[in-house]
Design a protein around this nucleic acid. Sequence first.
DNA 1: ATCGTGCGGTCAATCGTTTGACCAAGGCAG
DNA 2: CTGCCTTGGTCAAACGATTGACCGCACGAT
Lengths: 337, 337
Amino acid sequence: MKRARVTLADVAAVAKVDRAVVSRVVNKDPTLNIRQETRERVLAAIEELGYRPNVAARSLRTSRAHMFGLFIPDFANPVYAEIIKGAEAEAAAQGYVLVTGSAIGAGLGEYMDRIGQGRIDGLLLAGTGDDSGLTAQLDRAAIPWLMLNNRSRGVKRYVILDDQRAAALAVEHLVRLGHRRIAHLAGPSRADTAARRSAGYSAAMRDAGLPEGPITAADYTPAGGAAAMARLLANAPEGERPTAVFVANVASAIGAMDAARAAGLEIPRDLSIVAVHDLDLAGYLNPALTTVRMPLAELGRRGVTLLGGLDPDATVAEVLAGPIELIQRRSTAPPPS
Amino acid sequence: MKRARVTLADVAAVAKVDRAVVSRVVNKDPTLNIRQETRERVLAAIEELGYRPNVAARSLRTSRAHMFGLFIPDFANPVYAEIIKGAEAEAAAQGYVLVTGSAIGAGLGEYMDRIGQGRIDGLLLAGTGDDSGLTAQLDRAAIPWLMLNNRSRGVKRYVILDDQRAAALAVEHLVRLGHRRIAHLAGPSRADTAARRSAGYSAAMRDAGLPEGPITAADYTPAGGAAAMARLLANAPEGERPTAVFVANVASAIGAMDAARAAGLEIPRDLSIVAVHDLDLAGYLNPALTTVRMPLAELGRRGVTLLGGLDPDATVAEVLAGPIELIQRRSTAPPPS
DNA sequence: ATCGTGCGGTCAATCGTTTGACCAAGGCAG
DNA sequence: CTGCCTTGGTCAAACGATTGACCGCACGAT
């Protein structure tokens, strides 16, 4: 069992050529002039020895790490799982490795310290609030970065989804069912997605000629959704309780449904619920949750693509075109008559 | 805006010392003899220039990448999210970066190719079936590896949880409630966790003096759980339908509950359900799901710890001691009388 | 006067790849 | 015969950090 690592020099020795030739063969250098026979000798030697290029040496020399970073707030949020999948697939297609890190314990700053200098060629920031000190630091290190699904103050590089349209789709669905008192369970006030969905809600209500219902902020978690729904129901004057709620996030919606049940309401008979982001899970809930599907994987993919050919100084402001559709299930129905 | 990266040599020049001194200061080399004043000059220069060590150069020289890999089947499975969290926290504590990859598209083999040689110092394999060719390849590359929550044929390095005890806890809970016909919705037949939970189920049934109920295999997904539950109910002779089901995984359980409802059963009145793995979500389902909590984050943490000081040839076979507890919620109740 | 030793550093080889520059031999045109 | 091009490679200097070996000086002991 040989376990000393095999280097270019070893391969070169076996193939009886210079290291340079092996390197150029490995990297398919088009400027290399080589006899077919020699090339085969080299390839055979590589195969025989099981040669794999040493990435450390390679990236020291080329100053490209062939890695992208993806920073997310929390792995437990399945919304990010979709984004990761898309990003990972695209990174793999480009021959890059994706290293996903979360805000566990420390924040992005500490993550960057661990990542160190020269470990990644670009960084995707998903769902991270604005931290202008940090983006400045990234700029100083000349690391291209891009915000996913999140803009923040003064930031000039992001790609987002059309959350406004998603919200409108949800509201229009409720309106079509006959609802007139439609509340909004929004996301946390710091989140840009929350703001965009709220804007979509407001615009759609206006378009439908309806007055805005109560709006309550909630974390993107079941617990947050439950608490917010409880508050929303407690504050509604008797007889003016909303007949439907547009929830900004599917995780909150799960908690919100539970809180509504705890308040004695039956879904969808007494209250319709529709939420943003379609998860596998949504169809198996009780009742199955009506959602708006967003192209999350596509967002991850697009992020990596952009990062690939990005001038560190470039400006990117893109709203991803992609299918956004309403998935109707059992949690929405006409209002009680 | 200076963006040429600053190297040891730059710092050394500013501090008017040799590169070696700077290196030793950065790495806190205990053999270094240095005047306090000089050390401060060096630290000041580092601060002033914003020096960060270049990881490529460092790992080329030391042949340690300060990265661990973690390979999982699917990011969308929240069970892995917990493991990742624990592993990431521990890796961070050790000054390592965790690079988590999934089986997207290609398998572990292709992942290893992208990771290349020398990019990671160790690899954690979570929930990956046996692939002896691959572990052999890892051994050849002298990369320490460890299976998490999964043993496979002939593999001598793993750390697992006490799934057998978890299963027993669940079954005992059902028995205590008075159930006698307890079915088992197992995991996929290839999964080692499924086998261990099934063994726990069988042992607990035996201990309780009860005959094993029907056992059906299901993927660890809502869809898999739904399909399996439908099969299980269809196959049960009238009048001998189980009054409770022990489900091997929480994701399957969500689907299983839905299928039970679709068959006209009410939970827990007609059928009690208890599942392995406690997720945040479980408490907000309708009805809230009784689960067995497993120390998943601890598993990830322990994996990294072991990987840290691991001789590539060592044998590890550990059952993680950690709290396993039943979280009783609304999905379990005494059987119909 | 000599030796040893502790202090406060310096020197330079090394890790494995990449890549611009260079070169020998053969062929062919003038 | 000379000059020049093409083919098929070779040479060696980087990339940036680490680390064992070494060194000059001062001081105290013998």
